[in-house]
């Protein structure tokens, strides 16, 4: 089984340890939905300009963990964090009560499971992050919108209809638009919550290609249901089960010779 997976893996040089810098780190993170403890004492590094994948069966807490990084849980009453997620280079616990979640979200952007473009034009969707920061100078906004759309590999398809409604795009285009929207404000980190689960295989391939290019510039944390996807696009992988991180390591190691029996069972499809 391992041998089969190995051939499917892209050849990638394992990163030299000294080139690794921490972008964020979970330290003893617990999370509660009311009385339900959804995350249990998580410890995990997120390395700068690397892709880290969170895998695990439904309900294992991988999305909950991801959404802690931009304090999405603050939107709903009854949610509670304990422990820390430290962000570097600031070395600040972004879960601390005196940290403004809006400031965190300005630096850590997110792309959701289902494409969720706003009921606005393509242009205004990408410009949204600038609009809410009161950046309105047309030349600046024009330039950033074009740059973000190019980075999201959407520019060529939409440059002649920037002022059409975003809803007229296909599902895959909408998702790339959402990526452009997230990129337009130059975030340091991008969170992807199963970004391809609502897309067809071709659109999925284009998103994966995009993630592969984005790793040069930005730190990426991605939740995925699809193990092949994690194997294809990530540098590091964490396997989660019932709110705990069972194993974390370099993706090649996790997929080729997992140290933990549970991880192996999940990856080989015996479980999950």
């Amino acid at each position: 089984m391992s041998a089969v997976l190995k051939t499917a893996l892209p050849v990638r040089e394992s990163p030299a340890p000294e080139s690794l810098a921490l972008k964020a780190e979970a330290k003893g993170l617990d999370f509660y939905y009311g009385a339900f403890k959804a995350l249990k004492n998580l410890h995990m590094p997120v390395y700068e300009k690397k892709v880290t994948a969170l895998i695990g069966p439904s309900g294992c807490g991988k999305s909950t963990f991801l959404r802690s990084f931009n304090r999405m849980h603050d939107l709903y009453p009854g949610n509670r964090y304990q422990g820390e997620i430290r962000m570097y280079p600031d070395n600040v616990n972004i879960l601390a009560p005196d940290v403004d979640p809006i400031e965190v979200r300005m630096r850590i952007s997110m792309v959701f499971q289902k494409p969720n473009p706003f009921p606005k034009t393509i242009y205004e969707n990408v410009a949204y992050g600038m609009r809410v920061r009161n950046i309105n100078r047309k030349s600046t906004v024009d330039e950033k919108v074009e740059k973000a759309l190019r980075e999201a590999a959407l520019w060529m398809e939409v440059k002649d209809r920037l002022h059409d409604l975003a809803f007229n795009l296909s599902g895959g285009q909408q998702q790339r638009l959402c990526i452009a929207r997230a990129l337009a404000t130059d975030p340091e980190m991008l969170l992807f919550d199963e970004p391809t689960s609502a897309l067809d295989p071709i659109a999925t391939a284009s998103i994966e290609e995009l993630v592969d290019e984005l790793r040069q510039r930005v730190t990426i944390l991605i939740v995925t249901h699809n193990m092949q996807q994690a194997a294809r696009i990530s540098d590091y992988t964490a396997y989660m089960y019932l709110g705990e991180i069972i194993e974390f390591g370099e993706t090649d190691q996790i997929f080729i010779k997992p140290r933990n029996k549970q991880t192996e069972d999940y990856i080989t499809g015996r479980f999950g």
Binding site: L75, F112, N116, V132, R181, A182
Partner: peptide, 13 residues
């Protein structure tokens, strides 16, 4: 809710 979350995730108030 996904639209609201999209907006909050961009740092909107």
């Amino acid at each position: 809710m996904s639209l609201r979350e999209g907006s909050y995730a961009m740092g909107a108030t």
